[in-house]
């Protein structure tokens, strides 16, 4: 079982330590075959360990005749060469064939997304049929239930590995190369993911969350993302206010101040917020950060308190991450920025 939507302590910890272990708890066809392989390997491990322990017992305590036989040339040929040779070759061929089948052939009706590894977060881009980016997000991927999703995997710096254990095996993200992985969720839910290749510093806090919706819910989610841009209320450039966009509910009177502070504090140098002058590409895209389930790449729940804590002192939470702690801002300023970011849905 995956954690319920309303009650997760942290997605990254669910991915590692959830119970039953997500790696043995498949939620889709691409994870199913990985789990079969995992159980086969666990089973073989148990059998081989059993044989070795039994042989040890015989070698130490067994009757003279058995011990002689165990130490003979025939035992070495059979137990030392023939048996492992056949078993390991068989497992290797089967394992490689099975893992290759995870990406080939690519399903016809698949949705496509691009996930890019950065130190230490995941960039997410939703692609249309032509491969053009229709929406950017970070550290979170929403998919419809029952539909295969091809994930194009890139890296912008070092080698990372994309792994949502409930949905598929892991696949490396390699600089200068595109790898493809197919995932599919067969039941709605929230599935934790991690970077599974050590990538320096706070690698252990580089998490991800995949959310599977029923197709109708997913369509509603997508439609909501496309229209909820809160530009009209706080856009202070005359003549550039898109008329079609509804204002998002205002929380307190600090909205304009929050936007201004975000721009003045240099946040925009690294972060992009659609519909504003914030156009930085070095850090996670914040166009939809208010509706995200987590902050800090799958590690914190997203609420006003954690947003303030993250902006004000991200280095205490995720030491070594590339966002400096903005502890030069006052509590009021941090809250104003947090409120403005909450409205970016």
């Amino acid at each position: 079982m995956v954690s319920t939507m309303s009650n997760p302590a942290s997605d990254i910890f669910d991915a590692w330590w959830g119970w039953p272990p997500p790696v043995l708890d498949p939620a889709g066809p691409y994870a199913d075959s990985v789990v079969v392989l995992a159980w086969a390997l666990i089973g073989m491990g148990v059998v081989v360990t059993g044989i070795v322990v039994a042989a040890l017992y015989v070698a130490i305590k067994g009757p003279e005749r058995w011990r002689a036989r165990l130490g003979g040339e025939k035992a070495v040929w059979i137990g030392g060469i023939a048996f492992p040779g056949v078993v390991l070759t068989g497992l290797l061929v089967w394992g490689l064939t099975l893992t290759a089948s995870l990406t080939e052939p690519v399903p016809e009706d698949a949705m496509r997304v691009r996930v890019t590894g950065y130190m230490w977060w995941f960039g997410v881009e939703y692609l249309d049929e032509d491969g053009d980016v229709v929406m950017r997000d970070a550290n979170e991927l929403h998919v419809p239930v029952g539909r295969p999703v091809v994930v194009e995997l890139f890296s912008e710096d070092v080698i990372h590995s994309f792994w949502v254990p409930n949905l598929s095996g892991k696949e490396d993200m390699i600089p200068g190369r595109t790898n493809e992985l197919v995932i599919q969720a067969d039941s709605p839910g929230r599935y934790g993911g991690v970077c599974a290749e050590y990538c320096g510093g706070p690698h252990a806090l580089m998490g991800f969350v995949a959310v599977a919706h029923e197709p109708a819910d997913w369509n509603a989610w997508l439609a909501g993302r496309r229209t909820a841009r809160p530009v009209a209320a706080d856009q202070d450039v005359p003549g550039e206010v898109p008329a079609i966009l509804p204002a998002v509910e205002q929380t307190g009177g600090t909205n304009l101040a929050g936007r201004q502070l975000f721009m003045d504090s240099g946040c925009a140098a690294c972060h992009r917020v659609e519909g504003t002058e914030a156009n930085g590409l070095v850090g996670p895209d914040l166009s939809h950060v208010g509706s995200r389930l987590t902050l800090g790449a799958g590690i914190l729940p997203n609420n006003r308190g954690t947003m303030i804590g993250w902006i004000g002192n991200s280095q205490a939470i995720k030491p070594g991450n590339r966002m400096p702690s903005y502890d030069m801002l006052s509590a009021e300023e941090l809250e104003a920025i947090a409120i403005w970011l909450e409205q970016q849905r």
């Binding site: 302590a9 914190l300 609420n303």
Partner: peptide, 9 residues
């Protein structure tokens, strides 16, 4: 406390 992320601050 864990679910709400109090420990962020």
């Amino acid at each position: 406390i864990e679910r709400t992320g109090c420990a962020a601050c």
